[in-house]
Design a protein around this nucleic acid. Structure first.
Lengths: 343, 343
DNA sequence: CTGAAAGCGCTAACAC
DNA sequence: GTGTTAGCGCTTTCAG
C-alpha cells in the first residue's frame, strides 16, 4: 500500500480510502490507484485490516478425529456436511478454517478462537465431550455443535430428532414384519444413544421387547461390524431386521449378511441412517432416515451468525424423514425357519 | 497481553518473551505469567503475531464449484481428498482455509494469497482453467494443483497417471471378453480426457477400434448418466463394457443398466475410477482404478511446503492400480445375442 | 533479566 | 479532497 502511495504520489491514507470504496476521493486519483493496484496484483492485507478493525470474518469448522482408531476423516455424511457448511459460509461471506482436533479434547476448539484465528466455531459432533462443551459455553466461547440435543446442555446444537429417527426406523421394520431387530452403532455418542432409545421405544409402543443380544455396540468401522455380525450369526440368534447407526454401517452390515447367505431384503430388512448420496445408488437401494444435509449447513451457519450478532440463538432440530427404498422390504414369513406374523 | 503485563507488574515485552518460550525470563516471573494467561484463557493473537513476524501458517484449499450445474460439493472422492489434505496439513502444523471458487475463475485463488489469508494454495482439479493456472504460476503465485499432468504446464501438479489408469481399465475389460466398451465421463476435464486417451490406446494396442457411439461425454451427474445410458440402450447399440470416469459414475451406470434388465457383471462389465471407500461395499463390489487418497494429501502438502521453503518442486505422479472386484467379471459369450470370444 | 521504543500493514478521526 | 497522526496486538533490537 505504501508502494502504491509513493507511485501515485499520494498518502497511504488516500490509497486506503480509495481501495475500501470510501467516498471522498477524487475520481481521477481513485482511478489511478485502482489501476495501479490491479496491475500490481495488490490486495488489501486482511490480517492487518482485521487487526485494525477488530473484526474477523472466519469461522472454524472443527472435525474431531478419533485418536484411538485412526486419524483419517472418511464418513461421507460428515464429509458432505462439511461441504454444505462450506457452501453456506461462502454464501455468508465468511471464510472457513478447517481444523482437526482430538475428539477427547474438544475444548481445544476454544483455542482457535482465543488466538483470534476465527470468530466462532462449528463442531461436527459432540462425541464424548458433553461436559467440556458445557464448560466452554459457560466461558462464553461462541460455538455451535452439530449433534444431538441433550438434557442439560448449555451450548447450542443443530441436529435432527434422533429419538424420532430411531423410532421411525424401528417402527418401519416392525411394520415390515421383522421381530428380531438388531441395533448396530456406538451409543457412546449421544446421537446414536438417542437413536437407540427411539428404537427401544418403538418396541415398547408395540408391547414388544428388543432382544438385548441384538444390541450391538460398535464403532463405525466396516471391519468391526463385519466381525461382530458374523459372530452374532454364528450363535444362531434369530435376526430379521437391522437398524443401523449410519448408512455406512448399514452397507457393511448388508454385505456381511449376504456373504453369510442371508438375503437383504427377504431374510433381513435393513434401515440405514443419514441418506447419504450413495444410499439411493446402493444395491439394494437403502431405506434410511434422512438427515437434511443442505439445510443442516445453512442452519449451523445461521446460528453462528446470530451468535456473532450478539444473540443467543436457540438450538435447532431439523426434520427427519424415513426414505423407503428396497433394503427394508417385508421379511418373508419363512425366513427364520418358523412362522412369523407378516405385518 | 497488556492486561497480563499490568496484572503481573511487568512490561508487555516480558510477557511476550515468556509466552513465546523465549529464554531469558526469570523463572518465577515466567511462571506467574503463564499461570495468569492460563487462568484468563489468554492466547497470543495469531493475526498480530503474523503481521509482526511476516509469517503465515495457513494454506488455502480451493474447491471449485460448477456455477452452471449447482453449487453443491458432493463427490466422495474430492471430499475424501479434502479430508486427507486436512490431515496432512494438521500434521505439518498448518491451518487449512477452505475456499469455494467458481471453476471458471480459478485465477481468483490468487486473491486468497494476495490478501494474505494464506501463504499458498492447493487447488482441487484444474477444470477448464489450464491457461489461467499457467498465468498464475508465471506471476509467481505459490500453488499446487491436484489434477492431470499436462503437456506445457508451468504450474506444479500432483496426480495419478490417468493415461495409464484408463489404459488399465480398458485393457482389463478387453481381457474379460468385452468388445463394445463405452467410456462415460467429461473429457472437458484434463484428467478425464487422459483417461479416455488411455482407453483408446488400449484398443489400439489390441488392434481394435472403439465404437465412437460409445464415447459418452457426460458430467458427473447421476441423472444425466441415467438418461444418456437409457437413450443409448434404446438405440440397440451393442454394449458389454463400461469404463467410467469415476466410481460415482460407475455406480449410476450400473443402476441404470440393471433397471434396463442388463446384468452387471454378466451382460456388461464395468470398471470405475478412484476406489472410494464405498466401492468395495457396493453391490456388485466395484472393480476400479485406485487413486491413493492418503498419499495424495501428503504429496500435495509436501509440494506446498517445498514451495514455501523456496524450492521449485517437480510435479508428482502417484502410482495407480487396478483393483479387481466383481463388477467386471467376464462377459458371457451369449450376452449380446451373438458369439463373442471369451478371454 | 527486564523495559522502552519502533514498526508489521492498515484505518479513522481530525486537521487543513 | 487529501495528509497527519495514533494505534490495533504483537515482537525485537537496543539499553540499562
Amino acid at each position: 500500500m505504501a508502494d502504491i502511495a509513493r507511485l501515485v504520489g499520494v498518502s497511504i491514507a488516500t490509497v486506503s480510502r480509495a481501495l475500501s470504496g470510501n467516498r471522498g476521493v477524487g475520481a481521477e486519483t481513485r482511478a489511478r490507484i485502482e489501476a495501479l493496484a490491479r496491475s500490481l496484483n495488490y490486495a488489501v492485507n486482511v490480517g492487518a485490516q482485521n487487526l485494525r478493525l477488530k473484526q474477523n470474518h472466519t469461522v472454524a469448522v472443527i472435525v474431531p478425529f478419533d485418536a484411538i482408531s485412526r486419524e483419517h476423516l472418511s464418513d461421507p455424511f460428515f464429509l458432505s456436511l462439511i461441504g454444505s457448511i462450506a457452501d453456506a459460509l461462502t454464501h455468508s461471506g465468511y471464510d472457513m478454517l478447517l481444523s482437526r482436533i482430538d475428539s477427547e479434547r474438544l475444548d481445544l476448539a476454544a483455542h482457535t478462537i482465543e488466538t483470534g484465528r476465527a470468530a466462532a466455531a462449528i463442531l461436527i459432533g459432540q462425541w464424548h465431550s458433553h461436559d467440556q462443551l458445557n464448560a466452554m459455553a459457560q466461558r462464553g466461547v461462541p460455538f455451535v455443535v452439530w449433534g444431538g440435543h441433550m438434557a442439560r446442555q448449555l451450548y447450542v446444537t443443530v441436529g435432527t430428532d434422533n429419538l424420532h429417527g430411531g423410532h421411525l426406523a424401528a417402527t418401519h421394520l416392525l411394520d415390515q414384519g421383522a421381530r428380531h431387530i438388531a441395533f448396530v452403532g456406538d451409543p457412546g455418542l449421544p446421537e446414536i444413544a438417542q437413536r437407540r432409545a427411539g428404537y427401544l421405544r418403538a418396541h415398547q409402543d408395540r408391547g414388544l421387547e428388543a432382544d438385548p443380544r441384538l444390541m450391538r455396540t460398535l464403532p463405525f468401522l466396516s471391519e468391526r461390524i463385519h466381525a461382530d455380525l458374523e459372530a452374532l450369526l454364528a450363535t444362531g440368534t434369530l435376526l430379521d431386521g437391522i437398524v443401523a447407526g449410519s448408512d455406512l454401517c448399514a452397507m457393511s452390515a448388508i454385505n456381511t449378511l449376504r456373504r453369510a447367505g442371508r438375503r437383504v431384503p427377504g431374510d433381513v430388512a435393513v434401515v440405514g441412517y443419514d441418506d447419504i448420496e450413495l444410499a439411493a445408488h446402493f444395491n439394494p437401494a437403502l431405506t434410511t432416515v434422512r438427515q437434511p444435509i443442505a439445510q443442516a449447513g445453512r442452519a449451523l451457519v445461521d446460528s453462528v451468525m446470530a451468535m456473532l450478532a450478539g444473540h443467543r440463538p436457540a438450538s435447532v432440530i431439523l426434520p427427519t424423514e424415513l426414505v423407503q427404498r428396497e433394503s427394508s422390504r417385508p421379511v418373508r414369513a419363512s425366513s427364520l425357519g418358523r412362522a412369523k406374523t407378516g405385518r
